[in-house]
Write a protein that binds this DNA or RNA. Structure first.
Lengths: 359, 359
DNA sequence: CTGTTAGCGCTTTCAT
DNA sequence: ATGAAAGCGCTAACAG
């Protein structure tokens, strides 16, 4: 039980690492020879279901343990033509709404034995396209995107890829596949109606400048539409800073809003983050919230629930979006596996206005 | 120029998708035949440096474009024995400190043409081990970890893997390879000294319960050590909730602290998030900050800079940690590529106390 | 500048 | 229950 030592110099360089055979140096063949069986039997022994005698399996697994054999997924992928990868893109990882979605997704994919290739588009359609091009080389089995806005190149790539596609966080007009999202426009309208019901009539909207943040644009569109429907001004819009929207944008947006429309009595911010920034700036300036100005945001971020006064916001189940997106992808994959036809579906995630203390 | 249509049914199912040859259906061979060259020439044409005549390259690339050929990275990996992957693990993605680190890392790796396999240990050593086991099957070229605490299984796996290892966010006693981090203990001590210098003498510490959050434990250790050195009590410790530490833990921790040590005049929270939660709870209870109680956190989160009053915190360059971790990994890879010996290095990231308005 | 050959480590398929 | 052969798509190495 000592004849397999020293395959290469590295194996020797570990103090006390006697059985640290280099991963990659040991292949299934190596294990097979040591166990006195064929590679095929090792392969079978490593799958829990395949038919191998109890005795052989134990012997093989013991050797696997001894030599620290780690199967090479690349070779498996190559042979099975299934990568075990799911590509997933979010606009930003540094946003707990999206990282909640990623988390929900990864739990479901983990359970299915699929690994995620995670990418961060930084709210850029061209970066999205680049990432997709790179990811497609890994032959992901499905892809999950955020939103419904994509470059023509992206669309072409995805068409050719011929894998299940899930779009999240939005309800695209022309979906590429499954959809798990909600209408950001309706969400924007809902918060305006909420403020109106509480007596606010001079409501402003604070958004980001990015044209790529379609969710933000749609919330703004909903704001305008609802304002007009209610007969109140819908043109009080301030666009501050670029995506991703951050807390820092709150103060400058508040300043701009007050400078232009000093009588504003409520501010809807495209995200809780900027809403919180605006709230803090009000506190700094001694502006009473909600008495003088009401404030509302979107996303039900932790800061909205913890700050004082608590922010009024629009909540959606971010982790649920991820979970259901994964379920949609898995359903599509399963249908393909059985050669069934499955029409892409749209899952609408509910949202609701959460009345805090700021509106 | 129309003889390549309809390789399979899927290619036909796209409305107007005339040239949407399925990715994976078209191989390098296909392209080679269409261009009247060998696969090798296609391979070369796709690399910008390899020697192919201008004319041939253009012809090949034109066909590549026409048929929407996307190279199969799996086959390339298999042939070159270089995966192009870097494995990276963080305790939590839903924490802007770590997502900043990930961002810094991914920029550097992107530039080097390497893709990240990103994993989220959820502050669990066994999950870390599972993730590493899964990632190693993809044969990453290097691995970046958070912290220096790992299970024995993890250590064994990593020893066998024989790839560059970078540990971040900490200064492990027995590093596995390169280190890019700082002493959380010193950071904990520094904030105590800051509070002491501002006249605080009855300082409490709020941490999380998780024993896996070694950074938190070390900040606490630094707190105790510095307190003792200054001759003030170092036993006023409240552990609230599990990792990841969140804003929600602030209020309960504050309550527990005040119940047990009503005369506390300063609270150090293991993270800005719980510090902010505590601050908001003080505002709710009408406790003057910093007059009655000073509050300090760690991480220089955006909320610390935006809230009112601004939080006193300990700042470190999170993105820089990621960038330098990537640089260390790349340096190690380069050394290996040239068969050079390179001793792992430790890069100490500076931290500094940022005086806000709460302490 | 271009082509040929061989093979990466695994699984599929077919035999036994 | 186990083995042998073939091959997945690409590139390194060598030849021309």
């Amino acid at each position: 039980m000592a004849s397999r030592a020293g395959r290469n110099k590295a194996a020797m360089s570990q103090p006390g690492g006697s059985d640290a055979s280099q991963i990659g140096a040991v292949t299934m063949q190596t294990v097979a020879r040591m166990a006195g069986v064929s590679a095929m039997t090792v392969s079978r022994a490593l799958k829990s279901d395949a038919s191998v005698s109890q005795e052989t399996r134990e012997r093989v697994l013991e050797i696997v343990r001894q030599v620290g054999y780690v199967p090479d997924a690349t070779a498996r992928v190559f042979a099975t033509r299934r990568s075990g990868f799911i590509a997933a893109l979010v606009p930003s990882l540094n946003n707990s709404n999206f990282s909640d979605t990623v988390h929900g997704m990864s739990e479901a994919f983990d359970a299915a034995g699929l690994q995620m290739l995670l990418g961060d588009t930084e709210y850029s359609l061209s970066r999205e396209e680049d990432l997709i091009r790179a990811f497609l080389q890994r032959r992901p089995e499905a892809i999950v995107l955020t939103g419904g806005a994509h470059s023509e190149g992206t669309r072409k790539l995805l068409r050719s890829a011929d894998i299940p596609i899930v779009e999240t966080w939005d309800l695209p007009k022309e979906p590429l596949g499954d959809v798990v999202g909600f209408s950001n426009e309706e969400a924007g309208a809902a918060i305006v109606r909420h403020l109106h019901a509480r007596g606010r009539r001079r409501i402003g909207f604070v958004g980001g400048k990015s044209s790529f943040d379609t969710r933000g644009s749609q919330r703004r569109a909903g704001f305008k539409k609802a304002a007009r429907a209610l007969g109140i001004p819908g043109d009080r819009v301030v666009l501050a800073g670029h995506s991703p929207v951050s807390m820092t944008q709150g103060p400058e947006a508040l300043a701009a809003m007050l400078a232009r429309w000093p009588d504003v009595d409520a501010i809807v911010c495209v995200s809780d983050l900027s809403a919180f920034g605006a709230l803090a700036e009000c506190q700094r300036r001694g502006i009473a919230v909600p008495e003088r100005i009401a404030i509302a945001g979107f996303g039900d971020f932790e800061v909205a629930r913890c700050c004082h006064p608590r922010l009024t916001t629009v909540a959606f189940d971010c982790a649920g979006i991820g979970r259901k997106a994964a379920e949609a992808a898995l359903a599509a994959l399963e249908a393909r596996a059985r050669n069934e036809i499955r029409a892409p579906a749209t899952v609408r995630i509910p949202f609701r206005v959460v009345a805090g203390e700021t509106a």
